[in-house]
Amino acid sequence: MLELNKSLRPDISGIYRGRFAPSPSGFLHFGSLIAALASYLDAKHNNGQWLVRIEDIDPPREKAGASAEILQTLEVYGLHWDEDVLYQSQQSAVYREVLADLSQQKISYYCRCTRAQIKALGGIYQGHCRDLKQPVNDSAIRVINTFGTSQYNDLIQGHVTCNPELAQEDFIVLRKDGLFAYQLAVVVDDIYQNITHVIRGCDLLEPTARQLSFYQILQYKAPQFGHFPLAVTHQGFKLSKQNNAPEINKENPIPSLFAALTFLGQQPPNELLQANVTELLSWAIAHWSITQVPKSQEIVL
């Protein structure tokens, strides 16, 4: 087991620790606000700590100035984090340590299979390169998935079942282009930061199953997960930076906060539309109920 928590305080056991982890591929939109607000309220309602992590490990997709803009927007909306912001771009040494450990334990291998090849074979990677001793150059690194978790209990959705074949797939931890894979970075950083609860959107229900397998491979206890519905347009598109969702209003945050609370099933009284940010968030923290969050995986705006 790797010692990933060396730099953290030794007295945080038993404390709720949640997080919001945006990627700087664009500015915060309404879907991002829902994610930030849900994770923030669940942490604060449970007398916990709320952390912010910037997932900046994919430079080709990042937008200049987005990280600073995201943090400024969170502050305008009253969503203040409890510790220094963690930037994944500064975690390379930690990721490399994990990759070295996986290699030493012989539970990872180099793979040269392309997406097109995997798609042609049905879309599920079948472990083709596991015993081929592929060269390092022009290869990805996959971890041998000995657990294949396909079912778990979700704080919002209840019992979740994912595609068992996909859940059992050996997944990539280092991309062919040399960039660290999302599955590696997100699990290692949640361990590194002692995250106990992850509240995020339903688009990550299936990746969660894969991440739960990775926690077992690394021999660490996984956080509890809760997945809220996705905000989608009438055309069926998820609100996202990739779909050019509009940036939320920083001049007047109350309407967006109120709308996000309503989306999350919290039923704020109309008089809070006349409140300030501190008053609205104080009400929201006191009245937060995760059981009121809709179980639907998508809600059309």
Rank of each mutant, 00 (worst) to 15 (best):
L2S: 04
E3T: 10
N5M: 14
L8P: 07
R9M: 12
D11N: 14
S13E: 15
S25E: 14
H29E: 13
F30Q: 15
L33K: 10
A38H: 00
A38S: 07
S39Y: 05
D42F: 03
A43N: 09
A43Q: 08
N47V: 03
L51Q: 02
V52G: 01
R53W: 11
R53E: 06
E55V: 06
A66F: 13
A68E: 15
Q72G: 10
T73V: 13
T73D: 15
E75G: 04
G78F: 12
L79Q: 08
H80F: 14
V85D: 11
S89V: 14
Q90H: 11
Y95G: 05
E97N: 08
L102N: 07
L102M: 08
I107Q: 09
S108I: 06
C111W: 15
Q117N: 04
K119Q: 14
H128Y: 15
C129Q: 08
C129Y: 11
C129D: 10
N137S: 12
S139V: 06
T146A: 09
T149Q: 05
Y152F: 14
L155T: 01
V160T: 07
Q168W: 02
D170S: 13
L174C: 07
R175E: 14
L179Y: 15
A181D: 12
A181I: 14
Q183E: 10
A185Q: 03
V186F: 01
R200E: 09
R200Q: 04
C202W: 03
T208Y: 00
A209H: 05
R210S: 13
Q211F: 04
L212I: 14
I217Q: 02
I217R: 10
I217D: 01
Y220L: 01
K221M: 08
A222K: 01
F225I: 09
G226E: 12
A231S: 06
V232L: 03
H234K: 02
Q235P: 01
K241Y: 00
K250Q: 07
A259F: 02
A260P: 12
L264F: 03
Q267M: 09
P269F: 02
L273E: 11
A275P: 09
A275E: 02
N276E: 12
T278F: 08
I285L: 02
A286K: 15
H287I: 01
W288S: 03
T291S: 11
Q292P: 02
V293A: 09
P294G: 11
S296T: 12
I299T: 12
